[in-house]
Amino acid sequence: MHIVRFAACPPSPWKNGGGITRQLLIHPAAANLDDFALRVSVADVDSDGPFSRFDGIDRTLTLLEGGGLQLQRDGAPLVTLQADSPLLHFAGEWPISSQRLAGKVRDFNIMTRRSQCHHRAERLSLDGSLTLAHDGPLLLFVAQGDAVTVSSDGASDTLQQFDLLWLEHAGTLQLHSDSACQLLLAHVVFAGQRSDGDA
């Protein structure tokens, strides 16, 4: 059970000065933006403009904070994201540009390299206790709320808002929160692994 504390992730300013990104996880650990299989990050978007292009990458994006983010593809309206909007799944090759509706926004981003792995992400509401059996690897991110207790294979810890849990192997995960919170789950399948839908 590997926990990434958001508070411990240093911000990296964008080259164009339009925001900052905190990288929560990259796989393999020694990878960079040119050769990662999996990358998870949180970005503070301070300006409008085009997204960086990532050929061969599948992306999932959701808004965590802020007054909304309008996205265009090839100049045509694509979607307007709010904190409660459905997750947006799109290809890194798409020419996407964004416009903030009411100032700065913060977003959560999962990227997987199509030739090496794929991911399936979903929202999960938690208020009380829940047990999840999973095939691994599994990402769990606290999008709203805090003090989420996580237990797996005899280990237990507490996640705060924007903390990330990474489980590489199959198992059972127990979750508990005394108040309502929103979690993001992502199942990751690397090349050569069986997925839930495999025969």
Rank of each mutant, 00 (worst) to 15 (best):
H89T: 05
S129A: 14
G136Q: 01
I26Q: 11
L33I: 05
S41P: 09
A29H: 15
V42L: 09
I110Q: 05
S151P: 06
D157G: 15
S179V: 12
S156R: 10
L167E: 07
P95H: 01
A8Y: 04
P28F: 10
H119F: 06
D107N: 07
Q72K: 15
N32K: 13
L132F: 02
D157R: 15
R22F: 12
R73L: 10
G66L: 07
R100V: 00
L185D: 00
I57M: 03
F36D: 03
D55Y: 01
A83V: 03
Q82C: 00
D35W: 09
I110L: 13
L173W: 09
G56Y: 07
D58H: 09
P77W: 09
G75V: 11
Q70Y: 02
L159M: 15
A7K: 15
L81G: 03
S195C: 04
T131Q: 08
L25P: 02
R22S: 07
S12A: 15
G75Q: 09
S125D: 10
A30T: 15
N32D: 11
W94L: 12
S12Y: 07
W14S: 04
Q23A: 08
R22P: 10
S115D: 11
F51M: 11
L126R: 08
A76R: 15
C117H: 06
D55M: 07
L88K: 13
T62R: 05
V188N: 01
L88I: 08
P77A: 09
L69K: 04
T112D: 02
D153C: 10
M1K: 10
P86S: 03
G66W: 07
T62H: 02
L139W: 02
L164Y: 04
G18M: 08
H89W: 07
S129G: 02
H89K: 03
D196I: 10
L38W: 11
V45P: 01
G75E: 06
G68H: 13
E93P: 00
T149F: 08
L165W: 15
A83D: 00
A102G: 05
L33E: 13
R39E: 05
S179C: 07
P28R: 13
L173S: 03
L61P: 04
D135H: 03
D198Q: 06
E65T: 10
D135W: 00
G49A: 06
A30K: 07
D46H: 15
L71T: 04
G68V: 13
G66R: 14
F190E: 04
V40C: 11
L124T: 00
H176M: 05
R100H: 06
